[in-house]
Amino acid sequence: MTAMTTDLPLTSEKSPATVREATDRRRALMLLSPGVIWMTLFMLLPLGMVVYVSFWTQTTFAVNSTLTTASWERFLSSPTYLGAIGTTLRIWAIVLAATLLVGYPVALFIGLFVKNRTVQTALLVACVIPFWTSFLIRVIAWRPMLGTEGAINVILQKLGIISEPLTFLLFSEFSVLVGMTQIYCVFMVGPITFMIARIDESVIEAARDLGASFGTIFRRIVLPLSMPGVIVGAIFVSVMVLGEFATAASLSGRKVNLLGNIIVSQVGSLKWAFAAVAGVVLTIIITAVITLALRVVDLRKEM
């Protein structure tokens, strides 16, 4: 037997492991810093500023930094503004449900029934085609579709199904809902498709082999495994719909006032303090919605 001696002289130098750990930590900090700096400068500071400004004193033509709760009191006691919160939440809930209802089957089809990866990608890209044109065009394109002389009314009249044009189609809450669902659906489809496509084919085959019908497999296997995608999609859609103002502005004929529209009009008339109050309220609502969504599914566990 030969004995191997590994007696190295003890040195006071740092062990290689410590050095490596320090390097790793430095690299992590370097990767983190651009994001942290960006967020601090352009999100945290402005957010703090918005909260601060919401307590400034607003006069008809100017705003000064004397602190007061007057804007908050006016906002919270005005039926118009509280109504706007209600409208925003109602539109959000309906659009969220509609995008899920329209988007999930599409995602299920692309993720589960299309086996070819290339076709999957092509179909996902097809979902994004409307985004190749400007936001405004996408929204305004609904007018010739939904208007009283629009395609739907003309066709329905020609077919003799209706005699008078349907007026609720355009410049109503309905048209806002249709427009938003169309625009934001793809943000629901994407994440859900990715989650469903990640489900191992043999897991579904195993469930079939164990005697489960398609409905049962969907309920017990596919739906639970796609939940993280639903939550991510719901967060995307929520954040965008809650902050919306353009769709409502161009399709509602000023009948639908969202928090976003209030902010736009207040800023337009230089009511900074008041716009700030609406901004803070909107931020609180969005934070609450995201927190709620993350409660439903523990993304850390599922991803």
Binding site: S202, V203, E205, A206, A207, R208, D209, G211, L225
Partner: peptide, 20 residues
């Protein structure tokens, strides 16, 4: 017949356990 009506057991090479 569809697989769920065949009453046959299949043990997969990769086990195919339900991950959730």
């Amino acid at each position: 017949q569809p697989p769920h009506r065949r009453d046959i057991g299949f043990v997969f090479q990769n086990f195919a356990l339900f991950p959730h």
